[in-house]
C-alpha cells in the first residue's frame, strides 16, 4: 500500500539514508527511534512536507514523490497537534469539508467524527480551552473526517498523562481494527510494542531493523535495538567453539551449545548477572571481578553497573541490596550462568 524506495534526505547536520519500507493496507506500523533519529522527517517525506533528495514514495502503486501536500490524501497528526487556534472545535474538524458538502452533511460528518474520538461534547469550545488530550483528539477527528488512505501519527503520546495514554491506545487500536492503516512514530519501546503489528527501528537516519516486533526484539541486530528492550548486557562476539565465544577478541565466555560456529551477538538479562562480595567457590563459569560504578534504584530494585573486563549491568531487588550492603566503589564478583546467555548469529 505504502512503499518507500531508497529515500535519502540530506541536511548539513543530519541525513536520512537510503530508507526502504513497505507497509500493507490495514497494518499498524510503528517507527521506533530516539529523538533526532529522523523518524518525523520520514513522515514528512510521506506527507509531502519534505522532498527527498533521492528515492520514491508510492501510495497504492502511484508515485507520489513530487505530489503536492494537499493532493496526497495521507492524514498527518502532528506532535503538537497544530489545531487552528482561531477556529472552534467544530470548525477545526469541518475544515477539510468546507465548500465541498452542504452544511447539514458537514454537521452530520463532524458529529460522527467527534463521536468516534469522544469529543462530541466539545464542539463549541475554542482550542485554547482544551487540554492536551482533547486537543489531540480534535487533530485526530479533523484528519479522520477526510478518510485518508493512511494515518501518520507523530509521537501521539508525548503530551499525555498515563490515564489519557491508555484511552488513546484503545482508540488507536479501535481505528486500526476498523481497517485504518496507521504509521506511528515514537521513541517509547513500550508504546511501540503495545500497538505495533510491524516495527522499524531507526538510528541516526538509518533504518537498522524491521519486521514483526517480537522477532525484532528477540533477535536485535545491535546494542541500540537491544537497549530499547531494556537489555543492558549486549556484546558483539565471535565463537571459538560450539559452546564458547570471545568478546573483544580476548575475553572468553561460555554459552549454550550452538550448531554452527559463527560471529554474532550475545545478550543476557541484568537479573542473570549474579554478584557477590566474596569470590564464589567451586567451578563457576563466566566469572568476572569488577568494581561498582553506579547504583540506580527504581521501584522494582536496583540497577548496578560494574566495570570489569566487560562492562556489566546487574539487577538486584531492595532486600538483597541490603543484605549484600553494596555501595559505589565496592569490588565485587559477577557471574553469568551460560544457560541464560543468548547467542544471536549475524545472518
Amino acid at each position: 500500500m505504502l512503499e518507500l524506495r531508497n529515500i535519502s534526505l540530506l541536511f548539513p547536520e543530519f541525513s536520512l539514508k537510503d530508507v526502504n519500507l513497505s507497509i500493507h493496507e490495514g497494518e499498524y506500523y510503528v517507527i521506533l527511534g530516539l529523538s533526532g533519529a529522523g523518524k518525523s522527517l520520514l513522515l514528512e517525506c510521506i506527507a509531502g512536507m519534505q522532498q527527498p533528495n533521492t528515492g520514491q514514495v508510492f501510495l497504492d502503486g502511484e508515485d507520489i514523490t513530487r505530489k503536492k501536500i494537499q493532493d496526497r490524501n495521507v492524514g498527518y497528526v502532528f506532535q503538537n497537534h497544530a489545531v487552528f487556534p482561531h477556529l472552534n472545535v467544530f470548525n477545526n474538524i469541518a475544515y477539510s469539508l468546507r465548500h465541498k458538502f452542504p452544511k447539514e452533511i458537514i454537521r452530520q460528518k463532524v458529529i460522527k467524527a467527534a463521536e468516534l474520538v469522544s469529543i462530541d461534547h466539545l464542539l463549541d469550545r475554542q482550542p485554547n480551552t482544551l487540554s492536551g488530550g482533547e486537543s489531540q483528539r480534535v487533530a485526530l477527528a479533523r484528519t479522520l473526517i477526510r478518510d485518508p488512505k493512511c494515518l501518520l501519527l507523530d509521537e501521539p503520546f508525548s503530551s499525555l498523562d498515563v490515564q489519557l495514554r491508555d484511552d488513546l491506545r484503545a482508540l488507536l487500536r479501535k481505528l486500526n481494527r476498523m481497517g485504518r492503516t496507521i504509521i506511528h512514530v515514537t521513541h517509547d519501546y513500550e508504546e511501540a510494542i503495545s500497538l505495533a503489528q510491524k516495527i522499524a527501528v531507526f538510528q541516526d537516519g538509518k533504518l537498522i531493523q524491521q519486521g514483526d516486533p517480537f522477532e525484532v526484539f528477540a533477535n536485535p541486530v545491535s546494542e541500540f535495538v537491544a537497549r530499547f528492550r531494556g537489555i543492558r548486557n549486549f556484546f558483539k562476539s565471535k565463537m571459538i567453539s560450539h559452546n564458547q565465544t570471545i568478546i573483544k577478541n580476548v575475553i572468553p565466555l561460555d554459552i549454550p551449545i550452538q550448531e554452527k560456529i559463527s560471529e554474532g551477538f550475545i545478550m543476557f538479562n541484568s537479573t542473570d548477572v549474579k554478584i557477590s562480595k566474596e569470590k564464589p567457590t567451586g567451578k563457576i563459569s563466566n566469572l568476572f571481578k569488577g568494581q561498582i560504578t553506579d547504583i540506580i534504584p527504581n521501584f522494582k530494585g536496583n540497577e548496578i553497573s560494574i566495570a570489569s573486563e566487560i562492562n556489566l549491568t546487574s539487577f538486584i531487588d531492595h532486600p538483597e541490596l541490603k543484605i549484600l550492603q553494596l555501595k559505589i566503589g565496592d569490588e565485587v564478583w559477577a557471574s553469568i550462568n551460560p544457560e541464560r546467555i543468548k547467542f544471536l548469529p549475524i545472518i
Binding site: 503536492k68 494537499q70 496526497r72 502532528f78 487556534p85 475544515y95 477539510s96 487533530a139 484528519t143
Partner: peptide, 13 residues
C-alpha cells in the same frame, strides 16, 4: 507556526 499552514494543506487546502 508553519505547521498550521502545513496542517491545512494536509487537510486538502
Amino acid at each position: 507556526p508553519i505547521r498550521l499552514e502545513q496542517a491545512a494543506k494536509n487537510l486538502g487546502a
